[in-house]
Amino acid sequence: MMDRYTKLQMVGIYIGIFLFLSFMLLPFVEMFVTSLRPLEHLRTTPYQFWSDKFSFDAYRQMWETVPLLGRYILNSIFIASMVTACTMLLVVPAAYAYARLDFPFKDTSLGLILAINMFSGAVLLIPLYRVLKALGLLNTYWAMIVPGIAFLIPTGIWLLRSYLEKIPRELEEAAYVDGASRMYTLRRVVLPLALPGLLVVGTATFIGAYAQQFLFAITFNQNRELQPLPAGLQEFVGRQQVEWNQMMAAALTGVLPVMLIFFFLQKYLVAGLTAGAVKE
C-alpha cells in the first residue's frame, strides 16, 4: 500500500499539488503582504517583495479609519451563523424525508427545489426586494438572513439527502421493530451516524452564507450598524484615496474566525467527504 507510486510519480504529484495550492493561496499571500506595506509603496515601481518599512500599523489604524469594523465582523459572523442554523433546521427534516419517506410528487418537488439553484441571487434581487419590503424586513438582519436561507436550502437538501441515503435502511427498520418512533430513530440513530455529513453540509452552508452576504447587504440594508464585513469594507474607500493596506488587513481579520473553524473541523470534513467510499 505504501509504495503504490514510484518516486517519479510522487515528484509529479507534489509538483501538481504545489501548483494547485499556489494558485489558491497566492491571493491570500498577496493580501497579507499588501496589508503590511505602507500605502505609498502600492504605487511605486518596481514592485518590492520586501522592505524594512513593512509593519503591522494597518492592523491598528483600521479600527480608527472604520470605527464600526468590529461590529461589521460580528455582524458577518452573526448573519452567517443564523443562516446556517436556520438552514440546517429546515434541511435536516427535508433531506430525511427525501431520503426515506414516500410521498406524492417527491421527485417533482425535489426537482423544483433544485431548480432554484439555476437562478443566481442577482436575478431575483428585485422581486426579493419587493417581498422583503412587503414583509417590512428591509434594513433589518432578517433582510440578509431570510434570502440567504432560501438560496442555501436546495444544495443543503441535495448534499444531506445523498448522505442519509447511505445509512443502511435496516438500521431504521431494526429501530422500528424495537418500538422506536421516527423522531426517536432520527435522534438516536440517524443523526449521530450522519454527523460527518451534517458537518460537511453545515460548513458548506456557512461558507455560502458568508459569501452571499455582500449582495443582500448592499441591496436590502442601509442601516450601517447592521452591515456585514464585505459591505463594511467599502468604507476604506475614502474620498481622496483607498486605504488598501487597511482594507486587506480588515478582510484578513474578518476571515480569520472562519479559517480557524475550518482548521478544527478539517478532520471531520475529510471523514465526511469520503464517507461510504470504504466499507466499514
Binding site: 431494526a174 440513530v189 451516524l193
Partner: peptide, 17 residues
C-alpha cells in the same frame, strides 16, 4: 411490531455502529 410481540434479527445484523 412491538404489539405483535415479535422481534427480528437482520441478515446484516443492523447494529448501531
Amino acid at each position: 411490531p412491538v404489539d405483535r410481540g415479535i422481534s427480528m434479527v437482520f441478515q446484516s445484523y443492523a447494529l448501531y455502529p
